[in-house]
């Protein structure tokens, strides 16, 4: 009995310590984003929202935020559409070499982003192609396409085939079957792929850093803010990004995943 109390005491203590470790940097980040002063380190001088105001009037930061959203949404839409089409083809038709095709589509997942970015940069330089948000988007599709393909392909079970066949018997062509039958049936996993891909693209640094020039995304802009050292404004934008991600996560948890759990 005493031993059980001891074991459970140690367990809860361990839980508390590791949670403290996990939350320490985030707590410090958010707390000192409200710092009334120039340094985001102790002592805490008082509560102020001046750094949030500074974030919202910073044109470059707001432009980077817009760029990030644009790149994240566009690259995720392209990844989902291409991933869906490929998954449909590979799951519904037995093409020769389909294992090879699957392997090729998944391959970018196994290579570090740095190497993917360097390869693209080398090629774009050799072709004298200018760097822009478009090239960042191309890079983000390369890393997100495997993810979208894998998620959507995994959810294409054989049990949906008969419904698709029925639609075809009733005169629907392939595009109609895909748009009106397959895609709605797979909507939970397509949305999961889309949102996961948005989060990855939104947060991606090295590809965006190497493949952009004048217009940059948010992580790259935050990176250049770091050169000025510790700054409560960086805390403020960091806290805002964290808040946005957590909000998105909660929406997903309660809408999307909540629904799939019930089914």
């Amino acid at each position: 009995m005493l031993r059980r109390v001891f074991v459970s005491g140690v367990s809860w203590a361990y839980l508390a310590i590791v949670y403290a470790f996990i939350f320490l940097p985030v707590a410090v980040l958010v707390l000192f984003s409200f710092q009334d002063g120039r340094l985001p380190v102790p002592p805490f001088n008082g509560f102020s929202t001046q750094w949030y105001e500074a974030v919202f009037v910073d044109r470059k930061l707001m432009a980077a935020l817009g760029n990030s959203m644009l790149v994240a949404i566009c690259s995720s839409v392209v990844s989902c559409v291409l991933g869906f089409l490929a998954a449909y083809s590979l799951a519904r038709y037995k093409l020769p070499g389909s294992a090879l095709q699957r392997g090729l589509l998944i391959a970018p997942m196994t290579v570090s982003y740095l190497i993917i970015a360097l390869g693209l940069l080398a090629l774009l330089n050799a072709l004298h192609m200018p760097l822009s948000l478009l090239t960042v988007g191309i890079g983000h599709v390369v890393i997100n396409l495997p993810l979208c393909f894998a998620i959507i392909y995994a959810s294409m079970g054989d049990h949906q085939i008969n419904i698709e066949r029925a639609a075809r018997d009733l005169g629907a062509n392939d595009f109609k079957v895909m748009a009106l039958v397959t895609a709605p049936m797979l909507m939970p996993s397509i949305l999961a792929a889309f949102f996961l891909s948005v989060t990855f693209s939104w947060d991606e640094f090295i590809i965006a850093f190497l493949l952009s020039r004048f217009d940059v995304t948010l992580p790259v802009e935050i990176w250049s803010m770091l050169r000025s050292g510790l700054n409560p404004k960086t805390n403020a934008i960091g806290s805002l990004v964290f808040l946005a991600s957590v909000a998105l996560l909660l929406i997903l948890e309660f809408s999307l995943f909540g629904r799939t759990k019930k089914q």
Binding site: V81, L82, A86, Q101, L104, A107, P108, I116, L123, V141
Partner: peptide
Amino acid sequence: ADRRKAWGFAAPALLWTLAFFVVPFLFM
């Protein structure tokens, strides 16, 4: 006809991966 269609659906993703992943990697 089916085979052509199947290739058509898979082609965009395959070509994307070839053009922006395999070719750059080999070039590097």
